[in-house]
Design a protein around this nucleic acid. Structure first.
Lengths: 249, 249
DNA sequence: CAGTGGTCTAGACCACCCC
DNA sequence: GGGTGGTCTAGACCACTGA
């Protein structure tokens, strides 16, 4: 649990002692989830420490996701257990994609249309629908066939797509001042749909890896979604998870 | 890049201004990757701020993975770009697995043997080799066929496996005082190997999703590895990535 | 409005690293 | 031994929250 001086011989700093005590109290229900921690000044008094030290202790709890602090309001208990024991971290979403970055896009079709069910978009709404092939640079080997559905308020991207090579979500981020805050991804293995079989040159009854990605903004609104069909012999999805924090967090 | 007061109308705090300046200098190569930042006291003087404010600025760079700070040594520049823009976070590794948690294991075979190539273990070494089927609870439908390779120094788990239901890495963590610090995972779609076809009741030429997981300790030593074959019609792998930090980080 | 957390200062002592 | 970052104190003013 705590990691006070168990490893190193020297005593743990006070902020860590205090943070561990508070952590234990949260686990024990002394401070219930949803309720508020004592204020900084109360904690200063109880532990006879300066405000700075108190804040350092609270910072740790906050970083561990156990409490949420809000100016003027206080520190609310969020959870009994730290979140994010393991993280898969990446510089950019590029690493989500199951292909190397040195690729290019060939657009097959762009028009308004109704999304397919796999995209997780209500199929009664109209979205900009893009068909594209992702190819290895300088080669004609297709890496995947992609259907991209874009909210019509970003319909202006249509003009920008010509010769665009990167990920489409980035195009929308830079041109419409929105920010992708969250991505959901589902990987499954399915029978190749007819259109994908055609452009990927697959047997009609072949299996393909289908990767569906949904890009959401900070409020959970869907900005765009993509359905990507990968021939199985070129599909490899790698990730690396790391345990969070050496000492505590 | 910076997020000083662009959104809110009010001015950014000093530590954020300073941290942005330093960040820009790192990008511009004023402070080269591998070299050291000025010391805290030098930065205090340059920006006419207190040490506390300087440390807050440096803390941000450290959290962003741009610098590494070491007592007695200084702040070394690690990278020009922040890491961890996006994270896939999970409380435990259970969420790595492409199946619900309400499952059970049926062991088919346990003995010493040579790992297969897919596990990424030198095949000349001997490891404890476990064959198991993961089944839905109360049903005989197999979710996946697993080959688990365990370093022989944990050979004692053999006795503990009987009636064990959970993830094997946890068994080793609790019984041998080691900690999984890192997991590598690769998902691919391959032809079913004969043995897997047999126990999963698949056609000899069927495709299966192969998920290879390698569990490493803090020093990068492989503790165990597993190769899991999932019938494609039951395979679904979901993940959710979140952009890190509202304001900067 | 009173009380909260957010920012900031000017000091201090210490453990650690490297010369 | 001299300099680094790590911890800690005792103050201060401010922005924000909520009654």
């Amino acid at each position: 649990m705590s990691d006070n001086d168990t490893a190193t011989g020297r005593p743990a700093p006070q902020y860590m002692v205090v943070s561990d005590v508070l952590r234990q109290r949260i686990r024990d229900g002394v401070y219930q989830v949803g309720s508020h921690l004592p204020t900084e000044s109360e904690l200063c008094e109880e532990f006879s420490i300066s405000r700075h030290t108190t804040r350092e202790a609270l910072r740790r709890l906050s970083e561990a996701g156990l409490i949420h602090r809000r100016q003027g309001s206080g520190s609310r208990v969020l959870s009994t257990e730290p979140r994010n024991h393991y993280v898969h971290a990446m510089k950019s979403l590029d690493q989500l994609f199951a292909y190397a970055s040195d690729t290019r896009l060939r657009f097959l079709d762009i028009r308004q249309g109704h999304p397919d069910a796999a995209a997780g978009i209500p199929t009664d709404a109209k979205w900009l629908r893009i068909e594209a092939l992702r190819l290895e640079r300088d080669e004609d080997v297709p890496i995947c066939f992609s259907l991209v559905y874009i909210d019509l308020r970003f319909g202006g991207v249509k003009k920008l797509l010509k010769n665009y090579q990167g990920a489409i979500y980035q195009l929308i981020e830079t041109n419409f001042g929105v920010e992708v805050a969250e991505v959901e991804q589902v990987i499954e293995v399915v029978r190749v749909p007819p259109r994908a079989a055609e452009v990927l040159d697959q047997d009609p009854d072949a299996w393909v890896a289908r990767v569906v990605r949904r890009y959401l903004d900070g409020e959970g609104t869907l900005l765009l979604a993509s359905v990507n069909y990968h021939p199985v012999d070129h599909f490899s999805y790698q990730m690396r998870m790391t345990r969070q924090g050496g000492r505590l967090v």
